[in-house]
Amino acid sequence: MKTLLRSITGAILAIALAATAVTAAAAADMKGKIYYLVPTLLDEFQTGSIDAITKFMGDVGYEVVALDGQNRTDLQLSQIDDVINLKPSAVILAAVDFDAAKTGIEKMRAAGIPVMIFDRQITSTPSDFTSVAGTVEIGHVAAEQITRLLTEKYGSAKGKVLQILGDPGDPYTLEIQQGFEEKMAANPDVTIITHPAMQWEATNAGNIAQDQLLTNPDIDLIFVHAAHLAVAVAAVLEAQGKKPGDVMLVSSNGAPVGLDLIRKGWEQVEVEQPMYAQAAALAMFADKVVNKEKIEPGTYDVTGLESVLTIEDWGPNIKIPGAAITKDNVDDPKFWGNLKPPSEPVMSVK
């Protein structure tokens, strides 16, 4: 028995030593470690962003470690405290809560750790780099597309739109709503009914659609703030005997499920968040951020998308244009929902 225990202990130690050696060798090839604080793993965009950021940062020589905030502000702030002690080359933050993250960003920067903001723009405090599509702008694109669809149907922009938000405690969905409604204000003949799907839960979205279609059978179009909610809504439409296109469907974020719904005809437009480009932009400027070099404003080509970098009050900010995906361009590999990351390695900006 003693011999067996000794053998097992020896084997474990050997494996641990080997693993340490391999890790150390791998780390030696890297420029440093970057922590990515992802807000949740219960969202396809966020989990996809981990793969994209890991890949693109690897292209420019950084190792990425992702930490899941589980949609909890307190947990993400604790992770920030922990990460500060680990002294990484930089931190990429996709905040659970835009406002609450402010103190965390200030702490990290005070500790000399550069902070890069991903996807969820924070303007209340300076950071070292921001890469966003712009949630308000996503709302604008959705409004333009919905105006087009209603005009094609009626000859002018009129009708009834059911807007299904995500969780009402999430600023992400509220900003899309803000952008959408400020653009739609130009269409006084369009009635907008708004309901949130608590906790971004698909069943809740389905229930809302089912109840609303009963009390407002003249709904022309349903706009949902995430593709996974659109799946439940399409399922309800199908269960009610509707055919694709009877009630139009528009969604945002560009997840694979949304693209599939477009191919099947249930959805007309998906407003894409250009996740690959957003992630690639971080990698392109990683060296400059880590080495605290000056970042020049201007127009940059990010994975083929013309993106504008400006120097804002909160720091360098690159905005990648979101795109409207329709049945005409749904198979374009540049959309992250087609899950074909760019094969060309990302190059650092000199």
């Binding site: 793993l41 219960l42 969202d43 396809e44 989990t47 906790q199 971004w200 839960e201 698909a202 069943t203 389905g206 996974h228 799946v231 439940a232 399409a234 399922a235 199908e238 499920v257």
Partner: peptide
């Protein structure tokens, strides 16, 4: 009901 499943 939801024609599939999501993580949440």
């Amino acid at each position: 009901r939801t024609a599939g499943a999501t993580a949440n």
